[in-house]
Design a protein around this nucleic acid. Structure first.
Lengths: 230, 230
DNA sequence: GAGTGGTCTAGACCACGTT
DNA sequence: ACGTGGTCTAGACCACTCC
């Protein structure tokens, strides 16, 4: 027989009580044992439910003190990051890309700094325009640390750098930042826009754990939004 | 004796094998039972480790077929959303805000649409300028469905709307979207900037589950970034 | 020292999806 | 039908933290 209170049901019930203000922000809630007794299930089941709520920022839990409803809730917004081709195709649009530039270069100091590298090193500089239904969608400006990459393809016209990396250097460490910036005259031209125009910008930097791999700046055409539920 | 392979150690070991390409994208990995035997632990411990990796988008798991390394990884980027005061103070800056406008108004159709409300309803329109170290930081434009809110404070000069809501309507459902926009002349003036200027914009809409509560647009002064590790 | 959450175990049954 | 992950149980020990 299916237990009437699985961990998801318990999580939902706890959320209900919090939203109904039966348990108010800052207030203690019963211990796992008490709730297990109330719901007629094992403590591990209650633990699973409360652990997920703590992870979501709804509860604060400490040994000995017990669990409280968060007083200053820190909600977590989670966004999916995937390769550009799938993002475009996921909207039902056709995907294409154009390699604008590919050359060895000494990057600006800001890029070296983001990668934590010393000066005067040459990196592979790739600039790519991504298209959705043949309309400019995203301008990619990437620096690649070729020293740590095995078997680089002869050129990146067949498969985008983006996809080559996720296939060949999977699950690297990294960080990502979102911001807004005015398009430079060249960016506006490449995206087919007239200035002034505001671009949504995502910057990613990735490492293998010891060596830096790549720093990339993605400038999205106007209208782009990243969205999620809370 | 502490088990040499707790679930975190197993998660780390699986990640190591994936990054070392011992287990390549698209490839099957052993079943939970096999790994439990290999690591000398209970299946539940392996399950915990693999479940977290599936949640992070690293593994794809299906009953009967088993677990595979994701071929087209969808990494999850998670950002913390908190009240503006804590965000500013968390940077070591002093926080203040100015209530610019507070009046009952019929909102534009776009706002009613986001809230899923029918036309011609009056909502409370609040515009607030948030300051960090006395410098304009964020321009907030909010519409509040006063009909569902109990005990509204007399005015929002003492406590920001933001904080009043998290205390009194905790853990509502909602969505959030990030985008970029050119500042309007008025926005530029209020933020003390000269046009043209690109603003980072966050839009949130929240419900109690049945009734809409608020729709808010947050326009951040240049330099603002949301950042996280992957 | 004592109370609470964090984790692990060994076993069980079920849900799902492939065959 | 069968194999695999998803969940639950009852119990145990430990880690942390407050007293």
């Amino acid at each position: 027989m299916k237990p009437p209170f699985g961990w998801e049901a318990i999580r939902a019930e706890v959320m209900r009580r919090i939203r109904a203000r039966e348990w108010q922000p800052g207030q203690s809630i019963p211990t796992e044992e008490q709730m297990a007794a109330e719901f007629g299930c094992a403590r591990a089941t209650v633990n699973r439910a409360l652990r997920e709520l703590a992870l979501a920022g709804v509860l604060e839990r400490r040994r000995k003190s017990g669990s409280r409803v968060a007083l200053n809730p820190v909600r977590k917004a989670s966004f999916d990051i995937t390769v550009t081709r799938l993002e475009v195709e996921g909207r039902g649009q056709s995907y294409a890309f154009v390699l604008l530039e590919e050359r060895e270069q000494v990057p600006p100091a800001a890029v070296l700094d983001r990668l934590g590298m010393a000066g005067n090193q040459q990196l592979l500089h790739l600039r790519t325009l991504h298209l959705a239904d043949a309309v400019p969608f995203l301008l990619e400006d990437r620096w690649l640390n070729t020293g740590v990459l095995p078997d680089l393809p002869r050129d990146f016209r067949a498969m985008s750098v983006n996809e080559w990396l996720v296939r060949n250097m999977p699950f690297t460490y990294g960080d990502i930042a979102f911001s807004a910036a005015l398009a430079t005259p060249e960016e506006a031209r490449l995206l087919g826009l007239t200035e002034p125009v505001a671009l949504f910008v995502a910057e990613r930097t990735t490492w293998t754990g010891d060596a830096p791999i790549t720093a990339v700046r993605l400038a999205y055409a106007p209208g782009y939004r990243v969205q999620t539920v809370l």
